[in-house]
């Protein structure tokens, strides 16, 4: 059992008035708290970095892995986004955990990889974890597959009531996660890499809202395409990729979203700096744990066991 959220909510005084208005709105049907911001990145640096990684890394690195690392590093710089709503309160997550959605040809549906403490992982670590999960999932060998099969074997009425009970509990209490499927609730972010081969150019993308409220941020990158850009005041052909971030106004406002998106964009355009940032965060976390051992993950596991 894990407790993904901090034990007390973010103090009400720290929440801006407009966020509180959305938080106390009569229901999500009446007030749409979604903010979606789309931008473009100059993908030339990303492409060069991927090509360089292919010559040096023992693991194949893809845009999904870089997107995961960039999102984690951007969240580490903007921790106010790593939160979720429970009832009328806002809770911060203890760790920066990310979910990556991927298409599983084995069953034709979407699966999710959970990357825990992603801000302390190198690009190679992230890539290895994702490939391992993808292979296990596609071979039907992942432990989580058994839980999925159990869920699917429930009769329609059983599934409906189980989901209704789960959603009700999830919306009213900051619960621990139990079991492998439920572990996905440890993360505020869903990362989507839709730059697959033959994907059409992306001009707009609106991600869905998951039935539970654990996902507060959705980061989506579309396919890279050639476009005319202005570089040094001159028109030039360059590689461009669309990037969309969706957040919840009950947690952050458009200014905070814009700053987060600017950081994410900068990291994706200059990905070479991210492994150094991850190493720095490992050192900082270790130093913090040495000073305050009660904050360490091990201690947390001992407390909850």
């Amino acid at each position: 059992m894990k407790w993904p959220l901090k034990s007390s909510p973010v103090p009400r005084e720290q929440l801006p008035l407009y966020n509180l208005m959305y938080l106390h709105a009569p229901g999500i049907e009446h007030a749409d708290s979604t903010i979606l911001w789309g931008t473009e990145i100059d993908a030339s640096g990303l492409q060069s970095w991927l090509e360089a990684c292919r010559s040096t890394s023992p693991v194949l690195i893809s845009t999904s892995h870089v997107l995961l690392q960039a999102t984690a590093q951007a969240l580490a710089q903007h921790p106010d986004l790593n939160r979720r709503v429970v009832g009328r309160r806002v809770f911060a997550y203890r760790n920066i955990n990310l979910r990556l959605a991927f298409q599983n040809p084995a069953h034709g549906g979407v699966d999710v990889v959970l990357v825990q403490s992603a801000e302390t992982r190198s690009l190679q670590e992230i890539a290895s974890l994702v490939w391992r999960t993808l292979l296990l999932a596609n071979r039907g060998e992942a432990d989580i597959e058994r839980d999925r099969r159990r869920m699917r074997s429930l009769p329609a009425w059983g599934f409906h009531w189980l989901m209704a009970l789960y959603r009700w509990l999830d919306r009213h209490w900051a619960l621990p996660t139990i079991g492998r499927l439920d572990d996905l609730r440890c993360s505020a972010v869903l990362v989507n890499d839709l730059s697959f081969r033959n994907a059409p150019p992306m001009r707009c993308y609106k991600p869905t809202r998951f039935p539970d409220e654990s996902i507060s941020i959705n980061v989506t990158m579309g396919p890279i395409e050639e476009k005319v850009l202005v570089r040094d005041g001159q028109p030039a052909v360059g590689s461009v990729a669309p990037l969309f971030v969706k957040v919840d106004h009950r947690i952050v406002d458009a200014y905070q979203l814009g700053r987060f998106l600017a950081t994410l964009r900068e990291l994706l355009q200059h990905p070479a700096q991210m492994d150094a940032l991850a190493a720095e965060r490992i050192r900082a976390t270790a130093a913090r744990w040495l000073q305050r051992p009660e904050e360490s993950s091990d201690n947390l596991v001992r407390k909850t066991a």
């Binding site: 010559s55 023992p58 290895s128 490939w131």
Partner: peptide, 8 residues
């Protein structure tokens, strides 16, 4: 193939 074999 294992994940270690997914090498460039």
């Amino acid at each position: 193939f294992t994940s270690d074999d997914v090498a460039p």
